[in-house]
Design a protein around this nucleic acid. Structure first.
Length: 695
DNA sequence: TTAGTTCAGAAGTAT
DNA sequence: ACTTCTGAACTAAGT
């Protein structure tokens, strides 16, 4: 590997010199607005700053651009960890203010699309003493190239109605996220990855992307295009936070068949498929006689006239020829680049990774990329495309013996279309219509006919009816709540921003999310009511091989996506103690040993207004079937509705992108040390990081 | 609601 | 400098 590195790698391979990438400059003080969450009267469950967190695990609060460590409201400032400045911070990079190649400010000076562009993005550079020239910091990608669009420029926010949002410093935000992942080692030299590295890089990327998206959401439509996906990934690329950058034939370490991705750039970051747009990735193989290109991976996303015979065969069209460009004349495809590489791969017989684009059932426009494993090119031919020009076709056959991936998607489609029945189904809907989507009950491993009896309830039951003491603590936003509205109590409770992106995903786990509630005047479609709309994915309760009943989803779930509430009866601690011989207890007061395993997401303790304990033994919903996992793919989030301290709910969100039919697990958390022995059960989660038991 | 169009992207490759 | 099965926002067309 070391030998090939010298050939394949660019001049600046090797660990990135951060002192060159990051240009150290003092920052304008950006004081984020920290809410005194709730009204401060509630007896919060709090942990000391040294906390339940492992040392070296920096706290992170969304949008704390420059860590204002003097702010007493900043949760869990670590005295020994001056976060935000432990690593050099490059100059501020306000979103939407990237400079284009020709030197125009931000989104190029071309005509605005749609509505007339407001007079924004006006450059006010001298405000903080930096001229534009001084601020120019050329950055380099891991391949040593200049990144032309990274030159920062300050912009001035327009005068929004009641907007109190501070400018957000993207680069400091990045550093904050990176610090919470500082136990990870990222090597820009093209080192091979492993499962942990891949998952962490994707997690960082997703966290950054969601935060950028949220900030962009909160601004007016000043930018012609918003591409948080590109921006987040470009920043990571420039810092060398990627893995498997060395091209290779065959499997990529840390990426598993069936993994799903929501953006092309994610494929690039983990080394599955390097080009950001092109469908064919290839490398030059050098032999003693000659050198020739061979294909290493392809993305089949339906842009060309591909057709699919069955799940293990793929007819892939060559690239080029202007087939998908309407304004250009279609031309014959040429046997160059990717087309040539695929042709060479046919003769060489090497394995080619295949990533299939499928329609995201959760969104009308979105697309999901499924890694479908290795294929081989079986034959190729030329035919006339729709435009009458020559098009290359390549027939690829899946290498046998690999885990099911794309065919599983096809199966699920057939279940939902009613074409083929789901094998092992016991009940089509165990909720008996209590949820807005059916939840099937399935057992295809043994004869058990179902879990013990319980009453299905989609909602949380409080011991006594809660009566509203205060007349109205809700917000008065008639048109839905938006980030930056200083008149909206709910938004202010979340630090001035919506906790969710416009795409409907949780931006990041936080101590407490303030949603709108019954007393708010906004409608049910308000963005700040994400977890109130019932189930959004089709769930299935199924019999696991060795852990009893479990929960999984027919639909893919994206990072931050809402899954379900933990419903049941709110009980006091004594009853929970009584019932500690059963598994159906949710205890929000538990701490998390695994905080270090979930960097960037759960490094702050939940701040629940009261010690909420829920029993789902007799009454509950699908959440009661979710098993514990030491490397979970789901996390819980305390959600308060309408600023009512009693209207507290536990909601589950995806921690990773979750492929269909993958068991959903969350970390049950830790009990006090003296109770561990009495409660601990053997953990069978199967994770390499398994603690061996859970409580 | 759905389908099509527009436009700025980013990285890699070729020149 | 050029290429490229992006992705979002927008527009037009169809119920």
């Amino acid at each position: 590997m070391e030998q090939t590195l010298g050939q394949d790698s660019p001049p600046t391979s090797g660990p990135v010199d951060k002192s060159r990438v990051l240009d150290i400059k003092p920052l304008r003080s950006l004081s984020p607005v920290f809410p005194s969450s709730s009204n401060g009267a509630a007896p919060f469950v709090c942990f000391p700053p040294s906390g339940p967190f492992p040392s070296g695990f920096a706290p992170f609060y969304p949008f704390s651009g420059s860590s204002d460590s003097g702010n007493p409201q900043t949760p869990f400032s670590m005295p020994n960890q001056p976060f935000g400045f432990a690593t050099p911070i490059s100059t501020a990079v306000p979103i939407n203010s990237y400079r284009t190649a020709n030197g125009d400010a931000g989104p190029s000076g071309k005509r605005p699309r749609g509505r007339p562009r407001l007079q924004r993005n006006t450059v006010v550079a001298e405000e903080d003493g930096f001229s534009d020239e001084q601020e120019q910091s050329t950055q380099y990608s891991s391949r040593g190239r200049k990144i032309k669009s990274m030159t920062p420029k300050r912009t001035k926010r327009g005068q929004d109605m009641n907007s109190t949002l501070p400018d957000v410093d993207t680069d400091a935000m990045v550093n904050n996220i990176l610090e919470s992942f500082q136990h990870m080692k990222f090597d820009a030299s093209g080192a091979d990855g492993d499962r942990d590295t891949v998952e962490n890089i994707l997690m960082i990327n997703n966290l950054l992307r969601r935060k950028i998206a949220l900030i962009e959401d909160s601004k007016e439509a000043t930018s012609i295009t918003k591409r948080p996906d590109l921006k987040a990934a470009a920043i990571l690329m420039s810092k060398g936070i990627r893995t498997n950058a060395r091209k290779r034939i065959g499997a990529v370490p840390g990426v598993e068949i069936g993994d799903i991705f929501y953006f092309r750039m994610e494929l690039c970051l983990v080394g599955l498929h390097a080009p950001s747009m092109a469908g064919i990735d290839y490398m030059v193989l050098k032999t003693s006689q000659n050198e020739e290109p061979v294909a290493v991976s392809i993305v089949s996303s339906g842009g060309y006239e591909d057709n699919v015979e069955d799940g293990d065969v793929l007819i892939y069209s060559g690239q080029g020829g202007n087939l998908n460009l309407k304004d250009k004349e279609a031309t014959d495809q040429k046997l160059v680049r990717g087309n040539l590489a695929l042709e060479k791969s046919l003769h060489r017989g090497n394995e080619v990774r295949v990533i299939r684009g499928v329609k995201d059932p959760a969104s009308l426009t979105g697309k999901i990329y499924v890694y479908d494993g290795l294929y081989k090119v079986q034959e190729s031919w030329v035919e006339k495309g729709k435009a009458g020009c020559n098009v290359f076709r390549f027939k690829l056959i899946r290498v046998p013996g690999q885990p099911e991936a794309f065919t599983l998607w096809k199966s699920i489609q057939q279940w939902t279309d009613g074409i083929t029945p789901r094998v092992g189904i016991i009940l089509p809907d165990l909720t008996s219509g209590a949820e807005n989507l059916p939840v099937s009950l399935v057992n295809d491993v043994d004869d058990e006919k179902g879990p013990a009896y319980f009453t299905y309830s989609p909602t949380l039951k409080f011991p006594k009816p809660v009566t509203s003491v205060e007349p109205s603590a809700g917000c008065t936003c008639h048109d839905g709540c938006v980030s930056g509205n200083s008149n909206c109590h709910c938004i202010q409770g979340n630090g001035g921003y919506l906790p969710y992106t416009s795409g409907g995903v949780l931006v990041s786990q936080r101590p407490l999310v303030h949603e709108c509630g019954p007393s708010c005047q906004c409608s049910s479609t308000c963005k700040n009511r994400l977890s109130q709309g019932g189930l959004k994915v089709r769930l299935e309760v199924f019999k696991t091989k060795n852990k009893g009943w479990g929960l999984r989803s027919w639909d893919p779930i994206r990072v931050g996506g809402y899954i379900c509430e933990y419903a049941g009866e709110v009980v006091d601690i004594s009853r929970a103690e009584d019932e500690n011989n059963n598994r159906y207890i949710f205890d929000a007061t538990r701490t998390f040993q695994s905080a270090g395993d979930l960097p960037g997401e759960s490094n702050e303790a939940p701040k629940v207004p009261f010690p909420l304990i829920i029993s789902a033994k007799d009454v509950g919903n699908v959440a009661r079937f979710m098993n514990h996992g030491c490397s979970p793919n789901v996390q819980w989030q305390a959600v308060l509705r309408g600023n009512k301290e009693y209207d507290l709910h536990i909601m589950f969100f995806a921690l990773k992108n979750i492929p269909p039919m993958t068991e959903l697990t969350y970390d049950y958390g830790m009990v006090p040390p003296d109770k561990v022995e009495q409660r601990k059960k053997k953990c069978l989660c199967g994770s390499p990081k398994c603690r061996g038991y859970f409580c």
